[in-house]
Amino acid sequence: MELTNRALVAVLVADHVGLIAHVDAPLAQALGWCAHELVGRPLATIIPPHLQDAHHLGFSRFLTTHQPMVLERRLTLSVATRAGTELSAEHVITAIRIETGWLFAAAIRMQDSHAG
């Protein structure tokens, strides 16, 4: 299944440490991975290098303050493939409070054109 179809939305879930807890198989494949290979890896695995500082600071800041800066709104961000290329994707990220901390779920729709 190709994720370049704009109608398809895949889900990725990360835990409070910032490790990928779940990823839909089509999304993993679009990024050059099998889903089970991505689970347990840091989110930064699929974040391009130039966005990683902002990701780490923003993620940590949310865990510290619980004040979102990027949650619950539509964002267009680049994602990194296993080969190091960048793809453009629409994201809507939400945070869910659970007993052991936080879970972060992103609904991701790949865009047709490649970023960067």
């Binding site: 130039h50 780490h56 600071l57 993620f59 940590s60 800041r61 510290t64």
Partner: peptide, 30 residues
């Protein structure tokens, strides 16, 4: 480390002066 980084991010976000840093290509990374 998240807690330390979070406090750092919070402090920088509260600063009245504007901060930015780049990668080697001059692109803003934060």
């Amino acid at each position: 480390l998240h807690a330390t980084l979070g406090r750092l991010g919070l402090a920088l976000s509260l600063a009245r002066d504007a901060f930015a840093w780049t990668d080697r290509q001059g692109r803003i990374v934060w």
